[in-house]
């Protein structure tokens, strides 16, 4: 079953990528083909968010059940989340350079996302700095959960600093999906494909964490 899903994922991703470049018209009000980045930028951000949520959930599970496997999943998830987070920053920066002529302009969304990446980078740093293998997962889980509680403040505070140039998000004040049908179809399939990719990567990375841990002990 899972094997079939994994085999299907590659053609599915391929189809989504092809469709992203061929099917929808470029959105109005965007320079050239730049709007197509939405099919990669947003799914990356989505996958990163998913990864950080999974990381927090498994951190809590670890503290509750004390099963080291949960810690393996948590750290693997956060590592992958960081990869997607950096990809989000890079794709966003590409778009910003085309649209606004600068790679980086301290847009509130950019800065809050950068801080998010710092935050989970600090998580990995913290893990590396705690030498005791019994204590490391607990300290890391405590930080992941503490950060999880305070993270929403980043998104509350950031937009109040300056107005954002960032295009309207899927979750917007109008409560509507501002997309035409082809865009919408490709967009949501992109989200699904990236989610599938994330879970596949997670299952590999978490087992790699477990192997690494067993090798040490």
């Amino acid at each position: 079953m899972t094997k079939a899903l994994k085999l299907l994922l590659l053609p599915y991703m391929g189809a989504v990528i092809a469709a992203a470049f061929l099917w929808p018209e470029p959105a109005k009000g965007f320079i050239g083909e730049s709007s197509r980045i939405v099919f990669f930028h947003v799914p990356c951000a989505w996958a990163a968010t998913l990864a950080f949520i999974v990381g927090a959930v498994y951190s809590a599970l670890f503290l509750w059940k004390k099963n080291p496997w949960y810690d393996d999943v948590a750290v693997a998830s956060i590592r992958i989340g960081l990869v997607f987070g950096v990809l989000t920053l890079i794709t966003g920066s590409l778009f910003a350079n085309i649209m606004w002529g600068t790679w980086w302009n301290w847009d509130p969304r950019e800065s809050s996302y950068l801080l998010l990446v710092f935050l989970y980078g600090a998580y990995l740093f913290l893990r590396a700095a705690v030498e005791d293998p019994e204590r490391r997962p607990r300290i890391a889980a405590a930080y992941a959960l503490f950060a999880g509680v305070l993270m929403p403040f980043l998104t509350i505070v950031a937009p109040r600093v300056t107005a954002s140039l960032h295009p309207q998000t899927v979750i917007n004040p109008q409560g509507k999906i501002l997309m035409d049908t082809p865009t919408r179809v490709v967009f949501f399939n992109g989200l699904a494909a990236f989610s599938g990719l994330f879970f596949w990567m997670l299952s590999i990375a978490a087992r790699a964490e477990r192997l690494g841990r067993r090798q040490v002990s």
Binding site: L115, L154, V157, A158
Partner: peptide, 27 residues
């Protein structure tokens, strides 16, 4: 309390504190 028993405590503290207190500092 988290960094008390970790290595390189002072750097580590600033590193993990900064993203967390950023919203507070900005407000």
């Amino acid at each position: 309390a988290l960094v008390a028993r970790a290595g390189q405590r002072n750097v580590l503290f600033v590193l993990i504190a900064f993203p967390l207190v950023m919203p507070l500092l900005v407000s």
